[in-house]
Design a binder for these strands. Structure first.
Length: 572
DNA sequence: TCGGTCACGTA
DNA sequence: CGTACGTGACCGAG
């Protein structure tokens, strides 16, 4: 009979030295696997036979696993939990350690710049990872544990200790009962981010190039050709000006464009597209400029260079971050989160595969109903379109109701019907009070915590030069930020829980390939695609049920629009 | 070379 | 005086 020092679901800290081996440390024992290949094989075996909750310092550890084809089921990511507990986007072992030990996380020791004279003058004990002041020794953090099983074991043991302390800190958030569960789903999202980095988003490059070409023409042959094409694009705008105004105009310089427009008889405060949109008919140069801007965006940001840099083997890859520094939404580079809709037809499932695309409907107002515990607003969420009952209750049109609710969550004060805002206050006082409380706290510089326990820092960095008006407007800005962060942050937590459970429920040949704040894209073989769609829908209800279990405040319904498609552009 | 501003795409 | 993000071009300060 096989014995293991670990139990299913037990927290087991894992430290990997890709060149040497790995160490796994649990409550009641440890295992050392030496030799890189043997270590990965043993980790895979442990994952399969035991299924612990792996604890790791940073995503560098799962990166090794995912690269080796190992997809752990459960984890505890110290970075992710640190960000949750202490706010902001910065993390790393030194900060996680400091945060777990009640030390200053903003001022952790760093390795001094390499210096010939100071190199030998290190007052730290090389065998001792903890400094006298209680911080992790930065030289240890960097690579002090490499190539030595014993030091690697120390490193894993320290991780396990941090995870215990983090668990205690989460449990101590008595008014945030969802915090421990959120730490687990935030960890899962961090692991998913590693997988998204690795897997990439299926893209049909030929189709993408065709779309790019439709905006800016064929791929330039060389730098000179590129210059020529650029000049030709510029000319399509400049031709609408009298010849004596054309020279020296740089369309890429907004100030320049502004004066250009003024000379054409058009006065604007700035040259943003939404402002120019209404002036299209005023002068042909405006229309030409807006078309130019669109092409310029493709040329500079989403053109051939973008494809060359970020696409390989039919996948568009970016760098995923499981939580931003504000409300904790996922972010991604390489344009994965801001790809123009025009390019979405190029996101095509591979042969024999399809996408399941699902997006949460009206997620933020539903989240507001849940986190505030407003029963009247919760009742509205029982409708597939929750703005309809809100409109009825306020006695306004659906459009007005929608704008008013969104405006309340964003802190918008202008352009809203005052009657609708007053109506919200009387119809949904609990939800509105929740928002104004958050705004009041934030505007006076107090940190907030989301429903899942994420600390939202308000760091009111005092500017000695700020005058009274500056201070007031900054306080108001903090208020809007805080008000929105409580909703956006809880929505991000809800979304990540959903994504994490979907990930756990999917068969191994189906993968989440995109997370877009309220939208999931899953890539799967066609013969199971309907099953995957069912999993995605059922998982949403499971996510909602888990929330209700932890909160038990209001019966909020969540809905998703789910469809099976071949191209990202097909749904919606 | 760097930070700030403008601009614009997504949610 | 509606939030968040990433990217790129330009500007001015250093």
């Amino acid at each position: 009979m096989e014995t293991s020092p670990f139990a299913p679901n037990e927290a087991v800290a894992l430290a990997i030295d890709p060149r040497g081996g790995a160490v796994a440390v649990g409550e009641h024992g440890a295992e050392i696997f030496w030799g890189p290949d043997a270590a990965l094989a043993e980790i895979e075996r442990l994952e399969r036979r035991v299924g612990p909750r792996w604890v790791w310092w940073t995503s560098a550890t799962p990166e090794v696993l995912v690269a080796a084809g190992i997809r752990p089921a459960r984890c505890w990511d110290l970075d992710a939990v640190h960000r949750l507990l202490h706010g902001g986007w910065r993390a790393g072992p030194a900060r996680s350690w400091a945060g777990a030990h009640g030390l200053d996380t903003d001022d952790v020791p760093t390795v001094a710049p390499v210096d010939l004279f100071s190199a030998a003058d290190d007052d730290g004990d090389p065998d001792q990872p903890i400094r006298p002041d209680g911080h992790l020794d930065p030289s240890w953090v960097d690579d002090g544990w490499h190539d030595d099983p014993e030091r690697l074991a120390t490193w894993a043991t320290l991780a396990l200790e941090v995870s215990r302390r983090q668990s205690d800190q989460l449990a101590a958030l008595r008014d945030r009962p969802a915090a421990p569960a959120t730490a687990r789903s935030e960890s899962a999202a961090a692991l998913l981010a590693v997988e998204l980095d690795h897997d990439g988003l299926p893209i049909d490059v030929a189709e993408a190039e065709r779309i790019v070409s439709s905006f800016i023409g064929p791929r330039p042959l060389n730098a000179a050709d590129e210059q020529r094409v650029m000049a030709e694009r510029d000319d399509l705008v400049l031709m609408h000006l009298p010849p004596d105004l054309r020279s020296g105009v740089d369309l890429r310089n907004p100030a320049n464009v502004k004066s250009l427009l003024r000379r054409a008889g058009i006065e604007v405060d700035d040259t943003r597209a939404w402002r120019l949109e209404r002036l299209r008919e005023e002068h042909p140069v405006v229309n030409a400029l807006l078309i130019w801007r669109k092409a310029e965006r493709i040329a500079t940001t989403f053109g051939y260079r973008w494809l060359d840099e970020h696409v390989s083997a039919g996948r568009l890859r970016g760098s995923w971050s499981p939580s931003d520094g504000a409300a904790g939404r996922m972010t991604a580079t390489a344009g994965l989160h801001n790809m123009p809709a025009d390019l979405r037809p190029a996101i095509v499932a591979e042969a024999g595969h399809g996408f399941v695309r699902a997006d949460l409907g009206q997620i933020e107002p539903r989240i507001l109903a849940a986190v505030s515990g407003d029963h009247a607003l919760a009742t509205a969420t029982h409708d597939a379109d929750m703005y309809a009952p809100v409109a009825q209750r306020l006695g306004v049109s659906r459009e007005i109701a929608k704008v008013a609710v969104l405006g309340a969550m964003y802190g918008q004060t202008t352009g809203l019907g005052a009657a609708a805002l007053r109506g919200l206050d009387t119809a949904y006082p609990v939800a509105m009070r929740y928002l104004t409380d958050a705004a009041t706290m934030a505007s006076s510089g107090n940190d907030l915590r989301t429903r899942g326990g994420r600390r939202v820092r308000m760091s009111s960095s005092g500017d000695p030069d700020a005058d009274e008006r500056d201070l007031r407007s900054r306080a108001a800005a903090r208020g809007r930020f805080g008000r929105n962060a409580m909703v956006q942050g809880a929505a991000a937590e809800f979304f990540k829980t959903w994504a994490a459970i979907v990930r756990a429920r999917l068969p191994s040949n189906a993968r989440v390939v995109l997370c877009l704040h309220d939208e999931l894209l899953v890539h799967a073989p066609l013969d199971i695609i309907d099953n995957v769609a069912t999993i995605v829908d059922e998982t949403l209800q499971e996510t909602a049920a888990r929330w209700q279990q932890l909160d038990r405040r209001a019966d909020v319904h969540f809905v998703a629009d789910t469809s099976v498609i071949n191209r990202w552009s097909e749904a919606k």
